[in-house]
């Protein structure tokens, strides 16, 4: 046991030494400005020492701590769970905490605020509109067959196959990267965006939810699901491996009455539950 511990310590020391040797400098360009900045885009540039595992967020925090404390950044968990540090890094929407500088393959890194969001200051954007779209699709399970008195608590039983129907969509962390990459959102502010539509499918496909028709009606309007051009950029930028474009196409399939399978399944399950109770 002691030997194992010593070995682990030695390895970590070697890694640290290697990391120190690997360190180099990069040029970090950070967008500066507020919503009323009428002039051309302005950037402040900083030289930042980085090593093999330095993330863009680490580099930004280095600048904020040691070089310029006035930079506005939003971050929290530093492990791609909270979705706070979304920004455009070298032209692509990414999470700063999830993007290693070494994987960008360049010595010049440019950080800009997320497009399609109103700017607050520097790298911080306003998520109000994004969350409003999310709220509109009613992102919670609705089940009218539940006993309102809740005299007898019961579980919703699901098979692994039923969970698979929506599981990947439940990994969404609401970071807004898909929303900022969407070309339709760029022109149509009433369009719910890939995040909200994928969540609409997530609850639609969940067999614990029985408001399928309501959910379909909710996205079936002039600025709704039909405005998706299927560019697929939402799925490309998602840091959690969610495929919003797939969710949108699946929901469209149901609206066009091409796909009926989960509906059938849901009806069967309801029947089984009724018999069980």
């Amino acid at each position: 046991m002691k030997r194992k511990f010593l070995l682990a310590r030695e390895t970590s020391e070697i890694n640290l030494a290697r990391a120190k040797n690997d360190s180099s400098d990069i040029l970090l360009n950070i967008y500066r400005g507020g919503p009323n900045s009428k002039s051309e885009k302005s950037y402040d540039s900083y030289r930042v020492p980085v090593s093999r595992w330095t993330t863009v967020l680490d580099a930004l925090l280095y600048v904020k701590e040691r070089l310029d404390s006035s930079i506005a950044i939003r971050f929290s968990c530093r492990m791609a769970s909270c979705g706070s540090c979304g920004m455009k890094i070298n032209g692509i929407p990414r999470l700063a905490c999830y993007t290693k500088i070494s994987e960008l393959g360049t010595d010049t890194i440019t950080c800009e605020p997320l497009p399609n969001f109103p700017l607050i200051r520097d790298l911080v954007t306003d998520f109000q509109q994004f969350f409003n779209h999310h709220k509109k699709i009613q992102p919670y399970i609705q089940n009218t067959h539940l006993d309102p008195t809740m005299e007898r608590l019961s579980e919703f039983k699901q098979t692994p196959e039923e969970v698979d129907e929506f599981l990947q969509f439940s990994y969404c962390i609401k970071c807004g990267l898909c929303y900022s990459a969407c070309p339709t959102v760029a022109t149509d502010t009433k369009f719910p965006g890939p995040q909200a539509l994928a969540q609409a499918y997530r609850y639609f496909a969940d067999n614990r939810d029985d408001s399928a028709q309501k959910r379909l009606d909710n996205v079936d309007h002039k600025h709704g699901i039909w405005r998706c051009h299927f560019a697929g950029s939402c799925s490309m930028v998602c840091p959690k491996g969610v495929d919003p474009a797939l969710g949108i196409q699946m929901l469209r399939g149901h609206l066009l009455s091409i796909t009926k399978k989960p509906k059938k399944k849901r009806a069967e399950l309801r029947e089984i539950n009724r018999e069980g109770s």
Partner: peptide
């Protein structure tokens, strides 16, 4: 119609 709807968002325009 779809293209024009995406250009601007107001009830009058729609």
């Amino acid at each position: 119609r779809v293209m024009l709807l995406e250009l601007r968002q107001s009830d009058k325009w729609e």
